[in-house]
Structure formats: C-alpha cells, structure tokens
Amino acid sequence: MSIALTNATAPIAGRVRAYFAPVDRATSAPSIFDPAQSGTFPIDTPPAPWLDLGWIANFARKAETKVNPLRSGAPAIVQTQVRTEVEATVSLEFESWGKIQLALSSGSDQMNLLATATGAVANGSGGVAGTAVPLVNSDSTSTTLDVGSASANFAVGELVAVDIDYAGQTGYVGSGVSAAYVASAAAVNSDINYIRRVTLNVGRIVSIASGILTLGSPLLAGTPAAGMKVSPLTGFCDREGGRFFQEWSALFVFDGEQGDRVLYHYPRLQAMQGSAEIVSALTGTATGLAAPLERMRLAAAFRALPVTDANDSAQVVCFRSYLPGPMRAV
C-alpha cells in the first residue's frame, strides 16, 4: 500500500499551553522532557512531573545569541563566524491565576498568607502564624490529610499549606519544589512556620469527613512526609525585591490543527523580572458597554540557563521540537 504525501503547511493553532516542572536547586538538576518518548502526550494530561499551568497569551521567545564574523587579512574579509554569546529569553502571560502562576510571575519567593495567631502584629506579608496542625496516623495521601479531631478547626473551601516545621535549616527550603532560600535562621526569625509560609505545597479543602481533609487537587510534593503540618491560609503574597530567583523547567506546546505539534523545552528558566500584570480591556458585545471592565493577566519573563545535551555535550538553553502531522511531506 502506498499513500501520497501532503504538502506540509505552517502550523496553525489558537493558543499555546504551558507546563512547568521543578528544578532541583541544590544540584541545578532540571526536569528533562524527552520529545522522542513523550512528545505526543494528550494536551490535558502531561507526563509526570509536568504541571499543567493552562493556556498562555503573548508567548514570545527571543534568541539573544550573538553570532559575530571572524575576519582576517588586509583588507579584513570574513573567514568564518563564531558564537560569542548564547542567550535566550521567554515572556508570556498566564490566562489563569494560581499559586504556581503567581510564584512564576513574581520572580522571587511567593508567600502564603497564613492565618495569624491571635494578637499578631500587622505585617505586609502576613503576621505571625497560628499553630499548625500535625498530620496523624501516617495515612495521609497527596489528596487526603488525616488531621484527626483537629478537622473540626477546618472548613470546606479553606486553603491550606502543608509542609514541615522550620528547624534552623539553611539553603533551599520547600517540599516538592524549592520555594525560597534561607541564608540563616536569624534571617527568618527562626519562625517555625516559615517553610509553610513559602511552600508551594498547597491545596483547597473540598470535603471533610472522619478527621480527613480531602483536597481538590493533589499536593505538589505528593504524599506528605513525616513531620508535615497543616496551616490554613487566606491567599498569596509576593513582593518586589527579595533574595530568591524562581527557577523551573518549562515546556510550551503549540498544538497545530493539522495534527502537527511544536514543543519548546527550556530545561532551566529563571525569572528575570518582578511581579507584573498586563491589563487589557474585556471583550464585550458591539455595544461597548464592557469598556470600563479590564482583565489582568499575570505577566512573566524568564532567562534561559544552560544544560548539557547528553547526545553531544553541547551547552544549550532551549530545545525546539517539531512533530509533523500525519502523512505530511518532510
């Protein structure tokens, strides 16, 4: 059987989808996406450890690699070219707001507004937190937290942070993904709740029964480790400034309407701007009555850091893969 090939056309798609995965900050080990093995994954179900952060707008890649001529002779004539710098940046706007989107767009550490202790002194990123609730019975999972009789202190719909106590650790902290860098215990006032204050291991309670808090989505760090505790929180806070740079592995998918797919994989993206939003007028009907309403999208910008390609030891910052549509000429 022989099937005629069809001319390949330029990929067409409406939007770009973003997926992020943790980088082990202590070792600078990124999450590597293998397009040869996983490139055709269903767009709604990325392979582990990739987290689906939804559609993005105004995705812009910028290659800032400098290629310069090498001249010799008199008069000087270009003999060859050399790459004198390799650099790339990415900017985008998230269509949805969430803890990770906020963390990525904040550029720095992103705090949880933990419920405060009675009489706590006012503070811009939240006052001293109340006592965290320990997990009991060791039967918690990534979506169920066994807090025993303390479940009476929680309510359906409440947000919670789940992580270990701060006990003088220095370096990167946060379960599942590095959420902040602690230079010294003194810098964080030896706050027992500090790790829960910065952790990205958060969820929302959707039901409570028999001492079990059920979360609407799995915790980023998976099954809670021994010693983790639960702190209720009211929201999230980031600051202009700070000492920490978010660094994540990223995958962007342009899913073509002809069955073709373009994947952009940045193994190490580090935030290169502070928290910002893009405000745009809300699309309404022809009457124009929507004009005063505006939508705020989280804006993020990143600089790509290098990894070594195991195939040829090349230092690269980005991989672009193209999966042609079925029976397209190549």
Partner: peptide
Amino acid sequence: MSTNIFWSQPTFAA
C-alpha cells in the same frame, strides 16, 4: 482525506 478542517470561535449577533 489528508487534512483537517478547523474553525474559529463563534460570534453571536444580537
């Protein structure tokens, strides 16, 4: 056939 059709978002008149 060999290619896909695809379509835009709809617009709704009054």
